[in-house]
């Protein structure tokens, strides 16, 4: 039995050491890389236009610069040329799992249209992908429940992109925004009352002086038509 266990443990160790490469997936104890692509050109690209290195940090501390978020990447937007090759260094600054997923890629190169990096905890991963030539905006996010919702959302634009995605921290408005209380002070209340009174005064002023205003207006009209003529 002991021997069996030893074999099992060895097998276990073996898994860790060798890592699994399974239909575009590389997985080990640190995390996994799915659908990395450093050499296959998209059909619409003749050659790689530029080679870009991007480092993306993920963690709760990157959310500190956004109000009302909990997790974030250190950057929310990237813009690359059509057919660019992007070499991503993904760094997880938290003690928990985070992902970096890019969606909407062509399925013939990236199964399910997805490029996916995942870190089981603190650490870093490196992988490349080649973007198609189409002018498009891609969603970049961590898909752990509530991570994108709480700020881990960004966009990758090719050729300036075809628009912006909603709810990107610091960049775009949410579709469903939260409600917050308004800071009504004595000052803002008195401003409100004053404006209302002013409005009343103005209307009274207009009614009382309506003939004079009419005269002034007609005079002005006549003069301007004369000038125009």
């Amino acid at each position: 039995m002991k021997a069996l266990l030893l074999v099992l443990c060895l097998l276990g160790v073996n898994h860790f050491a060798s890592a699994m490469n399974h239909s575009g997936m590389i997985m080990d104890e640190k995390g996994m890389i799915m659908n990395a692509n450093s050499d296959k050109l998209p059909n619409d690209c003749k050659k790689i236009s530029e080679n870009i290195d991007i480092t993306i940090h993920a963690g709760h501390k990157h959310a500190l610069k956004f109000n009302g978020k909990m997790f974030a990447f250190d950057n929310q937007e990237w813009d690359v040329k059509p057919c660019a090759k992007i070499n991503i260094t993904f760094i997880n600054d938290d003690q928990i799992r985070h992902q970096l997923m890019i969606h909407g890629l062509p399925g013939y190169l990236y199964p399910e249209g997805m490029f996916h990096l995942e870190l089981n905890g603190e650490g870093q991963l490196q992988a490349s992908l080649i973007m198609p030539s189409q002018k498009k905006t891609y969603l970049v996010h961590c898909e752990l429940p509530q991570h994108m919702e709480k700020g881990m959302k960004a966009q990758l634009k090719v050729d300036g992109g075809d628009g912006d995605l909603p709810s990107i921290p610091g960049l775009t408005a949410p579709v469903r925004a939260d409600f917050y209380f308004v800071d009504w002070t004595q000052l803002s209340l008195s401003v409100l009352v004053f404006s209302a009174l002013l409005g009343c005064t103005i209307s009274f002023f207009i009614i009382l002086n309506r003939t004079r205003i009419k005269d002034l207006f007609t005079k002005y009209l006549i003069r301007s038509t004369q000038k125009g003529g």
Partner: peptide
């Protein structure tokens, strides 16, 4: 163990997620 939220909210629209 991780902590997972089910039927949570999203700023991306009027629907629940996970």
């Amino acid at each position: 163990l991780e902590v997972i939220e089910l039927n949570g909210s999203t700023p991306d629209g009027d629907f629940l997620i996970n």
